[in-house]
């Protein structure tokens, strides 16, 4: 991995299932070092896994010659992660709601909903092949946030 800024990392990995594990291990260590709560860590882990899976399966279409670029930065206030694939992009607003109608019984399509639920801010680039997401560190048992949660 190559550091590109203070507290920040940029890493390009193979676009294949499982290659996210070493990135998560490093991120996990840093979240613990900055005293993120277990709920924070669960939320960030799940969101990263879902974003990476979407990048590999739907972005790169399981083309193993393509890569996924992950950038992240962490401080005591927030963790910010960007996941970019080499696909043509998609319209996030066109993704069906997996909670509605027959979608509820489909085996796929829940990743983006989970990312939206667990992260405080998410956005896509205009092409739709890069996702940026932020979670603010909670404090203590009542999940009080360090700073005011910005609206999506």
């Amino acid at each position: 991995m190559e550091s590109n800024e203070q507290n920040g990392q940029s890493v390009t990995i193979k676009g294949e299932p499982g290659s996210i594990a070493p990135v998560w291990n490093e991120l996990d260590s840093k979240l613990h070092r900055h005293n993120y709560t277990d709920d924070d860590i669960f939320a960030v882990h799940l969101s990263l896994e879902e974003a990476f899976t979407n990048a590999v399966k739907h972005g790169n279409n399981m083309d193993l010659t393509k890569e996924v670029c992950i950038e992240y930065s962490i401080n005591s206030e927030k963790v910010e992660i960007t996941v970019a694939d080499q696909g043509g992009g998609f319209d996030p607003d066109a993704v069906p709601d997996p909670r509605c109608g027959e979608n509820l019984f489909k085996a796929e399509g829940r990743g983006l909903l989970l990312i939206r639920s667990y992260m405080d801010k998410i956005s896509h680039n205009p092409q739709g092949n890069q996702l940026r997401m932020i979670r603010y560190r909670r404090i203590g048992d009542n999940n009080e946030q360090v700073s005011e949660k910005a609206s999506n």
Partner: peptide
């Protein structure tokens, strides 16, 4: 810990 892929498995 589990991912949404496991939810898909449960549906199947």
């Amino acid at each position: 810990f589990l991912s949404s892929a496991v939810l898909g498995l449960l549906i199947r």
